[in-house]
Simulated assay, not measured.
Amino acid sequence: MIAWMSWTMPTAIFFAVIAAILLVMTVYEVVSPCTERKGFLPIATTRGDRLFIGLLTSAYIHLMFLGLSEVSLWIALGISVVWLCILLRWG
């Protein structure tokens, strides 16, 4: 059915982690509903907004590392995780 898709272990782990993050955030939202708040971002955001912005900017960080340097993507992953934590906490 999806034979045209080349599923490697890193690809499967990537999608599993994204699914797990969404599941955890959904449960967290049901248990503790949030309201919009203003952090260092120029707009009022909810946890879900900050998660989306964080995932999107993490993709850009990885693309910049791929396109502009020969440095390992593990460094980009580390920077992305730190950025996402900062954004979710203070964004």
Rank of each mutant, 00 (worst) to 15 (best):
M1V: 13
M1Y: 07
M1I: 11
I2K: 10
I2M: 08
A3R: 12
W4S: 15
M5T: 07
S6F: 13
W7E: 07
W7S: 05
W7N: 09
T11S: 11
A12S: 10
A12V: 14
A12W: 03
I13G: 04
I13R: 03
F14G: 06
F14L: 13
F14H: 12
A16I: 10
A16Q: 04
A16H: 02
V17Q: 10
V17M: 12
A19L: 06
A19N: 11
A20N: 06
I21Q: 09
I21F: 05
L23K: 06
L23P: 01
L23D: 03
V24M: 10
V24C: 14
M25Y: 10
M25K: 05
M25N: 11
T26D: 08
T26L: 09
V27T: 03
V27C: 11
V27I: 15
Y28A: 15
Y28R: 11
Y28P: 02
E29K: 02
E29G: 06
V30N: 03
V31L: 14
V31Q: 07
S32L: 06
P33N: 08
C34L: 02
C34D: 15
E36L: 13
K38S: 04
G39P: 00
G39C: 04
F40C: 10
F40A: 05
F40D: 06
L41G: 01
P42T: 10
P42H: 09
I43V: 11
I43W: 07
A44Q: 12
A44L: 10
T45Q: 04
T46P: 00
T46D: 12
T46G: 02
L51Q: 02
L51H: 00
F52E: 03
I53T: 08
G54Q: 02
L55I: 09
S58I: 02
I61F: 07
I61N: 04
H62D: 05
F65K: 01
F65T: 00
F65E: 01
L66H: 14
G67A: 12
G67Q: 14
G67Y: 15
L68F: 11
L68A: 02
L68I: 04
L68M: 09
S69V: 11
V71Q: 12
S72A: 15
S72P: 04
S72I: 08
W74Y: 15
I75G: 00
A76Q: 06
A76Y: 03
A76C: 07
L77I: 09
G78E: 05
G78R: 06
V81Q: 04
V81K: 10
V81C: 05
V82A: 13
V82L: 15
L84V: 04
L84W: 00
C85F: 15
L87M: 12
L87A: 06
R89F: 05
R89A: 07
G91H: 01
G91V: 03
